[in-house]
Amino acid sequence: MNEPQMPSCQNVSDALSDYLEGYLSDRSRISLEQHLEMCPLCLVYLDHFRQIYHVTGKPEPEQLPEDFTDVMGKVIRAWREEQDSGNQPDAD
């Protein structure tokens, strides 16, 4: 089997999301990791990406509107009234 061709820095940076998501084939992953071993700039770039990936994956505290329960109740009642009256507008 042929050795995987070494990707360029541009190829590596283009593939980093797929790398972090685990979407790369074994062959592509191995050649990307071989490039990273020899390229300090790409390694720092990957570290930036990892940090972005980690931070954006942190859920933010959920905040509902204060009157959410009231509003939800009104919405449900309005829908039931539409159903009871047979008047059902399009959803969109």
């Binding site: 939800m72 919405v75 449900i76 309005a78 829908w79 539409e82 059902q88 507008p89 399009d90 959803a91 969109d92």
Partner: peptide, 8 residues
């Protein structure tokens, strides 16, 4: 959107 969900 909640009303839209219920209607659909």
């Amino acid at each position: 959107a909640m009303l839209g969900v219920l209607r659909s």
